[in-house]
Amino acid sequence: MKSEFEVRRFTALVLAADRGPADPVAAMAGTCCKALAPVAGVPMVRHVVEALQASERIDRIVLVGPARHLLAQDASMTQLLDTATVSWLEPASSPSTSAALALARQPADSPVLVTTADHALLCREMVDYFLQQATASGHDFVVAVTPLDTVLARFPGTRRTGIRLRGGPYCGSNLFAFMTDDARRLASFWQRVENDRKHPRRVVAGALGFAGILRYLLGRLTLEQALQQLSDRFGVSLGAVIMPFAEAAIDVDSPLDYQMVERLHAQRNQSIPNDS
């Protein structure tokens, strides 16, 4: 029997497919796809993988995309895939479909963390915090959110899509924990969220019905109420972890995001303690 103090270990799926060189970030970086755009001289997706590798809560890492011939163009990624803990799967037509197919390949009793290749500021502390809280929550499915105020305090002027809930707004943070096999039924709903992610009202309306959208529009719906109604609708227990890290809400969705992430990594690398 496992000790209650034993760390529960996850398989991590990194969704790394995109629109190829037509993606504006890939075009700016001059790369074949966004996932391989260099950040501080390292492919963006490698920063994500290294953050996951640093966490003792991650057992295996699966890259879902980009296409294998694209990965072969980067020697560091080819070397990474030669390790025992990192593997690769062919991506599907969209992130949510890729996630659903990859989830179906994992053992039913294995908890799974899903994140994205453009989560370029991800670090071990974020991964550990989220997975510790998700494990303790007792929910089937857990999503990370970051208060918009937390993001703007750290990154004034940045543009993020916030879901307007009482106590929020909250920004999505590209960390999803599928704690049980039941949670994997949410993949179809995730596809709807993916399609409407820039239109939070549509997500709330479709999932919670007329009463839910009315409370949302009036600013009276709390995060807990929204999650409870979703749990009731889908028969799966949903929870959220409110992240204290502003960086958790930053994904590289545009050239401006890419420039900001490059700047932040450069500042980290050039940071020298001041002895004066």
Rank of each mutant, 00 (worst) to 15 (best):
M1A: 13
M1T: 12
M1I: 12
M1L: 14
S3C: 09
S3T: 11
E4L: 14
F5I: 12
R8F: 06
L13D: 02
L15A: 00
A16L: 01
D18E: 06
G20C: 14
P21V: 08
P21I: 05
D23N: 15
P24F: 08
P24A: 10
A27G: 02
M28S: 10
C33D: 11
A35S: 11
A35C: 05
A37F: 05
A37Y: 02
P38T: 09
V39M: 03
G41K: 09
V42H: 07
V42G: 06
M44W: 08
R46G: 00
R46A: 14
V48D: 00
V49G: 03
A51F: 07
I58W: 05
I61C: 08
G65A: 08
R68N: 04
H69T: 11
A72I: 04
Q73R: 15
D74N: 13
A75G: 07
T78H: 03
Q79L: 13
L80K: 10
L81H: 01
T83Q: 07
T85H: 08
E90M: 03
S94M: 12
S94N: 12
A99W: 02
A102C: 07
L103H: 08
L103S: 08
R105M: 12
Q106P: 06
Q106R: 12
D109I: 02
S110E: 14
P111M: 09
T116A: 13
A117T: 08
C123Y: 01
Y129V: 07
L131F: 11
Q133K: 12
T135F: 02
G138W: 08
G138D: 07
D140A: 08
V142K: 01
V142H: 02
A144T: 08
D149G: 11
V151M: 09
L152W: 11
A153D: 15
P156Q: 07
T158E: 10
R159M: 09
R160Q: 15
T161H: 14
L165A: 05
P169Y: 02
Y170L: 11
C171M: 05
N174R: 13
L175F: 00
A177Y: 03
A177G: 06
T180L: 02
D181A: 13
D181K: 07
D182C: 06
R184N: 05
R185N: 07
A187H: 02
W190R: 11
Q191H: 14
V193Y: 13
E194P: 03
D196R: 06
K198D: 14
P200Y: 06
R201D: 15
R201I: 10
R202I: 15
V204E: 05
V204P: 08
G206Y: 00
A207R: 02
F210E: 12
L214C: 04
L214E: 12
L217M: 14
L218Q: 15
L218T: 04
G219T: 10
L221F: 00
L223F: 11
Q228V: 06
S237F: 01
L238N: 04
G239H: 06
A240Q: 01
M243G: 01
M243Y: 01
P244V: 02
F245D: 06
F245I: 04
I250N: 00
V252Y: 01
D253H: 10
L256V: 14
L256A: 15
D257E: 09
Y258W: 05
Y258A: 03
Y258K: 03
E262S: 13
Q267W: 03
R268M: 09
N269K: 11
N269G: 14
I272S: 03
I272C: 09
D275F: 14
